[in-house]
Computed example of a mutant assay.
Amino acid sequence: MSNFVHLHVHTQYSLLDGAIRIDPLMKRAKSFNMNAVAITDHGTMFGTLEFYESALKAGIKPVIGCECYLAPRRLTDKTSSDSKSLYHLVLLAENQEGYRNLCQLASIAQLEGFYYKPRIDKEVLRKHAKGLIALSACLHGEIPFLIQEGKAKQADEAARFYLDVFGEGNFFLEVQKNGLEAQEKVNQAILDMSQRLSIPLVATNDCHYLDKEDVRAHEVLLCIQTGKTMNDKDRF
């Protein structure tokens, strides 16, 4: 049985972004002898029930999560700059309390924080952090973003904030291997930060499709989302 578990996965419920259908995901996890897999769609938990039922049917442990959008200020602030400076944060339910808090956060994001995307803020996050495990996310996470901006001190401060909110053993720094030059730079800084601040690492793959042959279909989805065409060289 594989010891690796995908903890950063976007299904078709990450609208116009994720291209992974849930039943094929379970079949693939099963074929790799994985005993668990997560769902972490962007800002929503729409696929949770289908994911949960499909996982149990396949004999796989479902890890319920969400990749939340974190507002740069308060979720009540809704200006053009607030819609463009969103940070990503992966949250996973560790237990029933965590699942309830995740549902609360997802609901608040939709009903109170929605501005182009469903958003939460750090104040709301702190109120509903119990029972949740947090990952620092992709290049759009707060810590990776600050690293890319050359703001090492602020990145450390952000890491300490999340560690304080979620507690030791419930916040992990995320490293990925996706071939991007920026990612390699961030990975090295994350490794250094992990040792310096004693925050554990987690390896993820930010999955958006199952097979490499699906890359073109995924690009089409992104073009629909961004209003571009496949002929645009700078479409992403």
Rank of each mutant, 00 (worst) to 15 (best):
H8F: 07
H8R: 09
V9Q: 02
L16H: 02
G18Y: 03
I20E: 01
R21I: 08
I22W: 00
N35Y: 11
A36E: 02
D41A: 06
T48P: 00
L49V: 15
E50Q: 14
S54K: 06
G59C: 10
V63F: 03
I64T: 00
I64F: 00
Y69W: 14
A71Y: 08
L75Q: 06
T76V: 11
D77C: 14
K78R: 15
D82N: 12
K84C: 12
L86Y: 03
Y87Q: 09
H88I: 09
V90F: 02
V90A: 04
L91A: 05
E94I: 12
R100V: 15
L102P: 01
S107A: 10
S107W: 07
I108E: 00
A109E: 04
L111E: 09
L125R: 01
L125K: 04
G131W: 06
L132F: 05
L135V: 14
S136R: 10
A137K: 14
A137L: 15
P144N: 11
K151D: 08
Q154Y: 11
D156N: 12
F161S: 09
G167N: 04
L173N: 07
L173R: 13
E174T: 12
Q176A: 10
L180A: 14
E184C: 10
Q188Y: 07
Q188N: 15
A189Q: 09
D192Y: 08
R196I: 13
R196K: 15
P200E: 03
L210P: 01
K212W: 04
E213Q: 13
A217W: 04
E219C: 12
E219N: 12
I224P: 01
Q225E: 10
M230G: 06
D232M: 11
D234I: 13
R235T: 08
